[in-house]
Design a protein around this nucleic acid. Structure first.
Length: 371
DNA sequence: ATGCATGAGAC
DNA sequence: TCTCATGCATA
């Protein structure tokens, strides 16, 4: 297949682009036809490919037809992210669209969309044909105008992820460096930090290395869930029961938190702080179960419904734009947040909170990724 | 299970 | 104004 694509040598793809194109293009996609090695190309640094990507190019099949889409494995380079990706794209006479859209790649691409980027295919005869915005064929409204929100376009060719002088922030150190920062109290349960060792259940491990080890936490979380289920207790039940443990400074928790603990979607520090508490509950619960002593449950009187919080829902197109911008600048200034909010017709606070939550999520993901 | 929100405390 | 631990509401 792909005959009409006369596979040119990949090595020249980047250097072959003229300055005009380079200055404007924020991402380059070089079609990596099956015969080609899908590995890094000379020129920009080429990070490893994400493992969560799926490679399924329809190569080897019938020759390309103008009207029938065919898939090729594209090599995409996103300068802003300083990363490269390889992914399958479908090509038609009209243009092309993604074959995969998720994870980091998805973000990179929405990022491209956000900036109204044009992807260039490294195959001579079809470059023009492929120079179309990703989403113009996906029913996505254009993002024209948002470019004004972008960080200085001059550094666009920089390979390192950048963004309006955002400080290094040492966040790459993951949670290791944050273990000492977990010292603030909290309004809800006072669980913000790990309880003093002497308050921890006797059976709890006290050795830092043991309590802190991500793998140990993971193992415990799984054990916890299984035993919890065996006890016939729901996540919400556990949360409430925690208050009955009478551990100093330990109050109830929500189903959300218990769920997140079990699914390891809390921050590392949070996991460490909660582990001994949940472990204490688990052991107590199993002890009571053994004694055949079941609590008739508490009355739990719902304090007359009042302030019903309303959860705003951000529509997919807007969300893609936010993700796009996030990929470029995870920490936009207040002004930019306002600008983004206006462009997307969202409340500024909604946008601000979205970025906050996104950062939290990203931290978790990064941590999980390296463990 | 997860998206959006809140609030205390740290910058 | 941000981070972080959490929670409410909902898909």
């Amino acid at each position: 297949m792909c005959n009409s694509w006369s596979p040119r040598h990949n090595g020249d793809i980047f250097s072959g682009l003229n300055d005009g194109l380079l200055s404007r293009a924020e991402a380059l996609a070089a079609v990596d036809i099956s015969k080609h090695q899908s590995g890094p190309q000379p020129g920009p640094p080429l990070p490893q490919l994400k493992h969560d990507m799926v490679y399924h190019h329809g190569v080897g099949g019938p020759p390309p037809h103008n009207t029938r889409p065919h898939q090729v494995n594209a090599f995409l380079y996103a300068p802003y992210l300083g990363k490269s990706f390889s992914l399958p794209i479908s090509v038609t006479g009209e243009g092309w669209f993604l074959g995969e859209f998720r994870g980091e790649v998805g973000r990179a691409l929405t990022f491209l969309d956000f900036n109204n980027i044009f992807i260039s295919c490294g195959v001579g005869s079809t470059i023009n044909q492929l120079q179309k915005p990703f989403f113009s064929q996906m029913g996505h409204h254009g993002m024209e105008g948002l470019d004004m929100l972008e960080p200085s376009a001059t550094s666009m060719t920089t390979l390192a992820p950048m963004g309006e002088g955002a400080p290094p922030h040492h966040q790459l150190h993951g949670y290791g460096a944050m273990n000492h920062v977990m010292n603030h109290h909290h309004h809800t349960g006072g669980l913000a930090h790990a309880p003093p060792a002497h308050l921890v259940h006797p059976g709890a491990a006290l050795h830092p290395d043991t309590d802190t080890d991500p793998r140990e936490l993971e193992a415990f979380a799984e054990r916890f869930k299984q035993r919890r289920i065996k006890l016939g207790v729901t996540q919400a039940d556990v949360g409430k029961a925690l208050a009955n443990l009478k551990l100093p400074g330990v109050g109830a928790l929500s189903q959300s938190t218990i769920c997140r603990f079990e699914s390891l979607t809390l921050s590392h520090n949070n996991m460490i702080a909660l582990k001994p508490i949940l472990q204490a509950w688990l052991e107590e619960a199993e002890a009571q179960a053994k004694n055949k002593r079941r609590d008739p449950d508490a009355p739990s009187v719902l304090p007359a419904g009042e302030k019903k919080r309303k959860r705003t829902s951000i529509a997919a197109p807007e969300k893609r734009s936010l993700e796009a911008y996030f990929a470029v600048q995870p920490r936009p200034s207040g002004e930019k947040i306002a600008a983004i909010a206006e462009k997307l017709d969202l409340k500024k606070n909604v946008v601000r909170v979205w970025f906050c939550n996104q950062r939290q999520k990203q931290k978790r993901m990064k941590f999980a990724a390296q463990h």
